[in-house]
């Protein structure tokens, strides 16, 4: 039971790293808390539902589509909302109120257009593009996709494995962006000291807009897998996702996007172990972890390393 819980926790946790990383990127660069983060995740989920049900194709195609859509949405939203927010005396506090309002608006509009019922995508639909390629190249049955994946002799949902791999790729690309590109170097400069970056001539608004767009894009990618990880989604799904994301971000280190990867995996393992041995208490976990980390290590697990860097 423990081995199963640990493996499930790692897979689940990698997915939650993707859920939280966009929130942390936005906070790290702009010092604003995007309380609508979960709602963009929810919208990403509905993009996937649309791709799978209306277009009838593999929901994996929704990954680049959702990313591009919400990258653009993020850039537009940034120019509408954030400069005014940054000009206020207390942008962090005002951001909480503003993005809470945005969250409510998104949920209400989504409810009007999408209804209140649960929506999901058949599990076998995810990854059909790979099985189709495999059949074309090597032959075999197209019906073989969608079954469990064996790890240490035990079956895990294939959708979890695909979500975990996608998360690893996304986290890797965030790393490449931050450490291998010029815009990423500027992003890290802004994350380190926003005022100093500004005084050295860095176009802080441009860097921040890019980070905001990428943050929303990452949230929407996580949303694409939400119907598979949570069974179904509704327009009200966002609020819970935001709370969990926030716990993971604080656990890893607020302001350090790569710390989120660690926070997500620790959260996932803890969740699965608690669900195995104390199932009634499992949903308290985000809050308990949040309290513990704030009491014992307020800077998060990777907090010190960031300061040294």
């Amino acid at each position: 039971m423990l081995v199963y819980a640990l493996v499930a926790g790692v897979l689940f946790g990698l997915y939650f790293s993707l859920v939280g990383i966009g929130l942390n990127l936005v906070f790290g660069v702009m010092r604003i808390v995007n309380l609508a983060h979960g709602d963009f995740l929810m919208l990403g989920a509905f993009v996937a539902v649309g791709v799978a049900t209306l277009a009838g194709i593999d929901p994996l195609f929704a990954v680049p589509l959702a990313f591009v859509i919400f990258l653009i949405v993020g850039l537009l939203l940034y120019w509408v909302l954030v400069p005014r927010l940054q000009g206020s005396t207390n942008p962090e506090m005002l951001s909480i109120i503003l993005f809470f309002g945005l969250s409510q608006v998104i949920e209400a509009v989504a409810t009007i257009f999408l209804g209140t019922s649960e929506r999901s995508i058949p599990s076998r639909a995810l990854g059909t593009v790979f099985s189709t390629i495999k059949v074309k190249l090597f032959g075999g049955s197209p019906e073989s996709g969608g079954g469990p994946v064996e790890i240490f002799g035990q079956g895990f949902p294939a959708s979890w494995v695909i979500a975990a791999i996608t998360s690893l790729v996304a986290i890797g690309l965030v790393y490449v962006y931050l450490y291998q590109t010029r815009l990423g170097t500027l992003t890290r400069a802004v994350m380190s000291r926003r005022d100093e970056a500004f005084s050295t001539g860095i176009d802080v608004d441009r860097v921040s807009a890019a980070a905001f767009g990428i943050g929303l894009g990452l949230a929407s990618i996580a949303g694409v897998f939400a119907p598979f990880m949570f069974g179904s989604v509704t327009p009200a799904f966002g609020a819970d996702a935001t709370v969990t994301s926030f716990a993971i971000v604080v656990l890893g280190s607020l302001g350090n996007p790569l710390g989120t990867a660690l926070g997500g995996v620790i959260y996932g393992i803890c969740y699965m172990v608690v669900q195995t041995y104390l199932s009634s208490w499992a949903d308290l976990l985000p809050y308990v972890l949040l309290i513990f980390i704030l009491l014992l290590r307020p800077s998060g697990l990777l907090g010190r390393r960031v300061r040294v860097a």
Partner: peptide, 15 residues
């Protein structure tokens, strides 16, 4: 066993 009403993931429990 009881689980919280908000539970949306049962893979470990099913195992």
């Amino acid at each position: 066993q009881g689980v919280p009403t908000e539970t949306t993931n049962y893979t470990v429990i099913i195992n």
